[in-house]
């Protein structure tokens, strides 16, 4: 469904991605692993249109995405949960979710809201609250719920476990699996390799802007390099 080929991205003169290639098939969960600065976040930002590639191609179900504006990419079915959640902290929980449905017709919003509330009942309890007052875990739930309001075909998740207690991380990842079972394809970027590989079908290991290793998640879990670098031996 998503095919990235030979992607080159620069921050001014600094090259962040050097010919990165990978693909995500319909219905999969795919993880990108790598150290800080390997280019994981850059990859997601380029797919969602926040960054312009200098070379290479990104296609979603055959359609070229490079050079398309971010607000149009959302309409093509890609939702991005950015690093650090980036919820609108001065808006209420409900307003955050409504703004997630910005591209949707008004009629379907109520139904989508119920779906999100069924996944995250906390958000329903706190829907009138200012989003900035939520706990870290609740904010992550809101960020994911907000992205789901766009009814994406492909969900990009950037470090959903960041700064959260292990028990919350488990809940969030269980929900990610549930979302995937409903037919949403997921591209996941994670530092927490163990839990990411546990829910993924496949994975890629990035180093300085290019793929150095790829394979089935189960194979990567047992790979020596991955064990040493990302799974703590």
């Amino acid at each position: 469904m998503l095919k990235v080929q030979g992607l080159h991205v620069y921050y001014d003169a600094i090259r962040a991605l050097k010919g990165l290639s990978f693909s995500v098939a319909q219905g999969e969960i795919v993880t990108l692993l790598g150290a800080n600065g390997a280019g994981k976040t850059t990859t997601l930002k380029t797919i969602s249109g926040l960054l312009r590639p200098r070379g290479g191609s990104i296609t979603l179900a055959g359609q070229a995405l490079e050079g398309v504006e971010p607000h149009e990419i959302v309409r093509l079915g890609v939702a991005h949960v950015p690093e650090g959640r980036k919820i609108f902290s001065r808006l209420t929980v409900l307003e955050n979710l409504k703004i997630g449905a910005y591209t949707r017709a008004a009629g379907s919003v109520g139904e989508d809201l119920e779906i999100v509330f069924s996944l995250f009942s906390r958000l329903k309890e706190r829907r009138r609250q200012i989003a900035g007052t939520l706990s870290g875990g609740e904010q992550q739930m809101l960020a994911i719920g907000r992205a789901l309001m766009a009814r994406p075909k492909l969900l990009l998740l950037d470090e959903p476990s960041m700064g959260l207690a292990p028990i919350i991380v488990e809940q969030i990842f269980a929900t990610i699996q549930a979302i995937n079972r409903e037919g949403v394809t997921i591209l996941l970027v994670e530092q927490n390799a163990a839990i990411a590989l546990a829910i993924s079908q496949r994975g890629y290991v990035l180093e300085t802007g290019t793929v150095i290793l790829e394979g089935e998640a189960s194979a990567l879990t047992h790979n020596d390099l991955v064990r040493q670098a990302y799974l703590g031996g």
């Binding site: 969602s48 609108f88 766009a150």
Partner: peptide, 24 residues
């Protein structure tokens, strides 16, 4: 209104607002 909420979202974080499908 939806557009009014979009104005406040853009005021807070234009990049993330564009990820919501808002034409900033």
């Amino acid at each position: 209104t939806k557009v009014g909420i979009a104005i406040r979202a853009v005021a807070q974080d234009p990049d993330t607002a564009s990820l919501m499908g808002i034409h900033v």
